[in-house]
Design a protein around this nucleic acid. Structure first.
Lengths: 143, 143
DNA sequence: ATGGTTTTCCCCACTTTTTTCCACAATCTT
DNA sequence: AAGATTGTGGAAAAAAGTGGGGAAAACCAT
């Protein structure tokens, strides 16, 4: 599973290296999607398929379910790793996450997160102060 | 299965390219029909057959079921992909979805959706606001 | 029916994007 | 230190997106 923090650059062709540690586990392909808090999520195939199957089996007649499926599924993209272990970011995701040059990839166990470096740094400094409070809240969740 | 967001143009002859990623899976033909929320649905043959069977077995006595069946089934049309992977949109569907030039094709797992680009953008901005709620609902799905 | 007009379909062509392949410097391993 | 691996960039080749011509088919009004 994925842990750790790594930095890379998106090049002019929108290619982004995946941490070499994680490449074997992906077996050549993965799925990127719109994530929360302005980053992207990167899943390995089987994690993604579980998620996608659940979402796509929601009732078609329910409008909430449709918009949900549209954001999550249409927002996703299957990507392949090239010979150097890079993926190709689609324009709409690159833009969604505000990625332009410096990027951080963070392993969060069952997925990776792709952040614009500046966003990541400010998110970290903003959150580090509150770690205590957050921990308190997590207790209620049984962690 | 179909995921991702792609943009294309309908040309003066009402031809529309299908994302190249999805062409193999369609094996040369597909079914377009009136969709919900102002878009068109595009199914691969066997998915369509499943859906059509489901719809046609809805209780005839219920007026909702009848109108749903009329929209989805009477609106449907089988289309073939030309040598460049494009389909031909029938007039009434082109008009129903308000397609004139810029178009977005969204993969929603077991179907594609065809949207007028402007409609799609405003639908997205309207929905993206709810991303937080969406995350909450994911939890209910056990994801 | 006939001639003219429109639509459909098949094919080709141009431009842009994507993919593949290679290069090279920096870093890590042994 | 020598060799392997990794991050990054770019050139060349292949594929995709888009538009248009023209033959065949369908439509229509005389």
């Amino acid at each position: 599973m994925f842990i750790g923090e790594f930095s890379y650059k998106v090049d002019s062709k929108k290619r982004l290296a995946v941490p070499s540690k994680f490449r074997d586990e992906l077996e050549g392909r993965a799925v990127v999607t719109r994530g929360l808090d302005g980053c992207l999520f990167l899943y390995k195939m089987d994690e993604w398929e579980d998620l996608a199957r659940k979402i796509s089996s929601l009732p078609l007649a329910q409008s909430d379910a449709r918009s949900f499926a549209r954001v999550m599924l249409a927002g996703a993209m299957e990507v392949e790793l090239d010979s150097s272990g890079r993926i190709l970011l689609p324009d709409y995701l690159k833009e969604y996450a505000g990625l332009d040059k410096e990027v951080v990839i963070a392993g969060v166990y069952n997925r990776m997160e792709i952040w614009d470096k500046d966003k990541w740094e400010s998110y970290k400094t903003a959150t580090e102060g509150e770690v205590g409070d957050i921990a308190e809240r997590l207790k209620e969740l049984g962690v």
